[in-house]
Design a protein around this nucleic acid. Structure first.
Lengths: 215, 215
DNA sequence: TAGATTGTTAATCGATTAACAATC
DNA sequence: TAGATTGTTAATCGATTAACAATC
């Protein structure tokens, strides 16, 4: 598990998708699948699928294929979904609430145990059994709790400041929804969802009449 | 504007980011910038920036650089942000509401004029001055209104069916938040925001102690 | 004119695909 | 064993970076 070299971003983006399709196969009761069948389903080449999987180990059996259950478990492990993450959400406006309420199913393992906001109208509200705390108490809270992930749902102007607090407080990863490119140290994981960038990419594709698009 | 060949997905993803930084420079009152200065700011190589821009035209001036205002306008035009899009949101749960309410600023040009849901408790609610209609009336509505973009905030099980309706109704693009890979004809633009995939990518990066990450 | 910086071609790098030997 | 399919090396393709001539 240690000292593997850098996994390319392209592979990281494909892994959750493998997971989704394997989960689907599982619910269908399908026990084994070959890279060719998976290719048909998921749309990557069989060659790419085998290459991707072999980055992490030898999960298949020659002449047979891959066991769905086993591969699903392996990918979960690779993705770090075999553990739980203590998570806080900063900024409990529309988006923060949506994330907090977001279908439990898709957030298994990501336990939102703290909510913070600066707005006195929001502080004290209870969302999904968690009471919204005053953001002024964030740093103090982080000293007590061992938080893994901070979700940034504050506005652009405050995002970096909040991130700095979170990192001082020891979080391992940031899930950012603010429309800004945040600065974090190398050892901190950062994943940004830039909704407006995504919308603008859509608009580009509409103008250029699309043709193939990725995903 | 016509018959240019396929713009790579990598470039499409960078364009909204150029736009963001140019908007920032504008608010700072900066009038000109060289590819080297922009590289410093945005983190792409100067060479890449020049290559990217030259995909769409010659926007700079040798020996001088790029005019911020002009380049910003050009990129807006390239992204199709010089027009308006009639937009509907299907599924007005937490996420649909968040998208609908999402800071006006980031949605300029994307006018949400129709909201639809199947839940009788939600139908009739007014969000951002728009009343939620019964999803049963979607197809009829699309026949009357000329809608450009449909935003999918329904669950996985219903997403493809809704998309099929939207496409029959003539939309040009789909902004999808359901955790499924939708099927659309080649001429329809599709942009998916897979929140759970994004979260799982974050979890991967945490496990693998990150190091560099894209964005 | 000299200096700066673009536009663009050429070189490099990395990711994807093809091919095939290993092996179940 | 023969057939199937993986694991893995080699070939190809595309995207990024470097270099430099054009030109403001």
């Amino acid at each position: 598990m240690q000292n593997r070299q850098k996994v390319s971003n392209a592979i990281i983006r494909r892994l959750p998708r493998y997971r989704r399709y394997l989960g689907y196969l599982q619910t269908k009761g399908i026990k084994k699948i070959s890279s060719n069948e998976l290719s048909e389903l998921i749309g990557y080449t069989a060659s790419q699928i085998r290459q991707d999987l072999n980055t992490f180990g030898e999960f298949g059996q020659q002449g047979y294929g891959y066991e769905v259950d086993k591969l699903y478990k392996e990918i979960n492990r690779i993705l770090g979904l075999d553990r739980e993450y203590k998570t806080v959400v900063i900024g409990v406006g529309n988006l923060g609430q949506a994330i907090t309420n977001y279908s439990y199913y898709y957030k298994i393992g990501f336990n939102i145990i703290g909510l913070f906001d600066v707005n006195p109208k929001i502080v004290g509200n209870v969302i999904n059994d968690v009471e919204v705390m005053d953001a002024a108490g964030l740093e103090e809270y982080l000293e007590k709790e061992n938080i893994d992930i901070g979700v940034i749902c504050v506005n652009r102007e405050n995002a970096q400041r909040v991130v700095d607090s979170l990192i001082r407080g020891g979080v391992k990863g940031i899930w950012n929804f603010a429309p800004i490119d945040l600065e974090v140290p190398d050892e901190i994981a950062l994943e940004s969802v830039h909704l407006s960038d995504s919308l603008h990419a859509l608009s580009f594709m509409i103008r250029n009449n699309s043709g193939e698009k990725k995903d």
